[in-house]
Simulated scan of single mutants.
Amino acid sequence: MKAQLQTAVESLIEKLEGWFTTTVEMIPNLLLAILVMIVAYFTAKYVRKFVTKIASKKISQDSISIIIGKVAAIAVVAAGLFLALGILDLGKTLTSLLAGAGVVGLAVGLALQGTLSNTFAGLVLSFKKKIEIGHWVETMGFSGEVIDINLKDFTLKEADNNMVIIPNRTILENPLKNYSLTTKMRVMLECGVGYESDLEKVEQLTKQTIANNFDQVKDPNNVEFYYTEFGGSSINYLCRFWIDAENALEKLKSKSRAIIEIKKAYDKEGINIPFPIRTLQFDSNLSVENADKFQEEFSNN
């Protein structure tokens, strides 16, 4: 028993000594492998910037240039990893990893169906010329400037400076309004004037006011003006005109400016913009005696 124990201890010591010797011998290779990975990491950062810059000169979509830069960086890191494994003489390990990648990839693909669908949707969005970084879009109740299109999500910056992150798949599956695809937008303004107003004068004054304050209009005849209804307290109209704008914020500013200038013009000409009022009329036949008589008849019944 004592001899067997001594043999086991000697065998263990021999193995530990072998491992120690191997570790000491591998230290230079290990340090070199770590150095290779560090160099690959920093090289990947510069490669990403360089490739993105070169791609942006050839491709108009910024999102595609960014993705190409990221792919180039990943390729550099992967090359560094393979080189480091080769230095450590882990070629067989690398082969085993590649052999098992197919099975693992299938399992991961089934588990990450949503993530993969967003990835492919991100690729599709990146190659869409009608959706680019810097465009002002509206989708699913959110409106803002496209800040980023990556392989996971779609980022909007709203007018109030809040960021909205939307999955790529959702963008592809839902309608999207892109304000930046055209350089013109139509401003629609609804208002009402009093029943005592000269309607022809109101129309002429409104058109002239819009033409005087918007260089894009110039001619009053380019302003559309339609009376729409006899309202409860005013005669209502719809005024429409085109402006040079590429986002909803410019359109909103133009509408605000038009309201201010029209109000000034109406005040100067004495044109009334009425607000809803209620008139209470008491018939002369209603008197205290009639009220008492009605109350007496009601009590008898």
Rank of each mutant, 00 (worst) to 15 (best):
V39A: 11
A265V: 09
N222W: 02
E17S: 14
K293C: 00
E196Q: 12
K157F: 05
L35E: 02
P167N: 07
D292S: 08
L94R: 01
K53R: 12
M188A: 13
A265M: 09
L5E: 10
G232Q: 13
G270I: 11
Y179H: 15
V24E: 07
A75K: 00
E173L: 14
L83R: 00
V76P: 01
R278N: 07
K45E: 12
T155L: 12
K157W: 05
W242F: 11
G232S: 14
K70R: 06
V47M: 04
Q113T: 14
V47S: 01
V202A: 04
F82K: 10
V36S: 02
W242E: 15
D62W: 03
V104Y: 12
T139Q: 03
L181F: 05
Y41N: 08
G144N: 01
F241C: 06
D153H: 09
F294V: 09
S254A: 15
N162D: 05
V104T: 13
G231L: 07
S65T: 02
G102Y: 06
W136N: 07
K255E: 15
V164R: 12
G122F: 01
K201P: 02
F120G: 08
E261I: 00
I133R: 03
Y179D: 10
G134E: 06
A72I: 07
G231W: 06
N168C: 02
A73T: 02
